[in-house]
Design a binder for these strands. Structure first.
Lengths: 218, 218
DNA sequence: ACAAAAATACCGGTAATCGTGTATTGACTG
DNA sequence: CAGTCAATACACGATTACCGGTATTTTTGT
């Protein structure tokens, strides 16, 4: 079942000594874990990741010298085989996204149990990604809440036809293009566009597309 | 622990008889489940949800007459207390988002086990939301893939000045406005704009703003 | 059935952008 | 030190969007 080599050599990157030690203690009790290195900032993490024999990095985000995001980018660029498990207190959509884009393989919350950490490590060593369910649920429900607000405030008073036309505008179609596509007159499309601008208090196509993007109408 | 009333009366909305029956079979074996109603399209689902005594709807998305999205909106508008568990084959970000915005309480994949369904029902009856981990993971990793491509392919070769100008464009400023703000000639701003369009293979301001929004340049 | 909202369509004029070029300057790079 | 890139600036015709109206026909909601 386990396709990865044992033992797993780890690097714990966290500026808080206590946390690093705690994680270390938890992990060294596991028989699948080999050597455990510790780095107390991002710079040190990069150095050790590139010189020592490391399979997987347990990465904090907020660190002096070089933060977890930048450290992850560098490590993944230089040695893509090294897996990165992010352990963070913040877990809003923006940071999760950034870390994943930086190449992180797993993202778990600092206040979840140790079993979560072990699951994450196992998953990434099998070349799978992992995000703890608590985090993803939070992200989605919060995302959802925000959307409801947007809808209530703004998007609501746009008609379906207007929304449809916004989408085409955002794709770069001109009034004329849209008219052909929807079998309308160009002046009709232009009227819709004008109505939308008036309703939303905007002045031109550019700001309209930005509005649409911000309000996830696309 | 369980704050919800037992038994739970269910409504299964799915146009495929076999699937509806299968779900019904699974669920009626559970002691927490009371009466099980079946609807074979969205319209029927809405009717039964509003007339029968239903606590929770197991909702398919693709259905004739009225799809699961619209049906959910109506049910949630009329009777917000009724919980909606979406069981779908598609689970891309767009549809999950839409369903949640429509008021759905849970979203699970059709090919996950029955335990997943039971967990989801329990969660929603406790007024919690639920998204199966498989789905949220998929969403994030896919999101991730796409972003990496964007970065590598395009956004990289825009100059700082060009990025700066894109931002102003997206805010709705005209060439003239931007020129004043940056102490440039309007033709210079226009040149930048045209260069950006050429670089990115876009044809007008609208598509440019959309590109910027998609690539988080704003 | 009736009012309100949405979707359709037009006019005339002004302002902005698009397309296709050219050109100069400074900074960085092999 | 030649070459590339970024930033600046301009010309000119063609196309498109913006502004401020007006007006008819479907839909929709009550």
């Amino acid at each position: 079942m386990t396709h990865y080599q044992l033992p797993i050599n780890l690097l714990i990157a966290d500026d808080h000594q206590l946390i690093a030690d705690g994680l270390s203690q938890i992990l060294e009790a596991e028989k699948m874990v080999g050597k455990i290195h510790i780095a107390k900032n991002g710079k040190e993490a990069v150095e050790k990741a590139l010189t020592e024999n490391i399979d997987c990095v347990i990465m904090d985000i907020n660190m002096p010298e070089l933060n977890g995001l930048e450290a992850t980018k560098i490590i993944k660029k230089e040695k893509p085989a090294i897996k990165v498990v992010v352990v963070s207190m913040q877990c809003d959509a923006a940071i999760v996204n950034k870390m994943l884009r930086a190449g992180a393989d797993a993202f778990i919350n600092k206040d979840t149990g140790k079993s979560e950490l072990l699951v994450a490590i196992k998953k990434v060593m099998q070349h799978e990604k992992y995000i703890s369910p608590e985090i993803s649920l939070n992200l989605f429900t919060h995302l959802n809440d925000r959307k409801v607000h947007y809808d209530a405030d703004n998007a609501k008073h746009l008609t379906p036809r207007e929304t449809e036309i916004i989408r085409y505008i955002a794709e770069g179609l001109t009034n004329h293009d849209i008219a052909n596509k929807l079998f309308l007159s160009t002046v009709t499309v232009d009227t819709h566009r004008k109505n939308i601008l008036a309703k939303l208090g905007l002045k031109n196509t550019a700001s309209l597309v930005k509005y649409a993007a911000d309000n996830k109408l696309l």
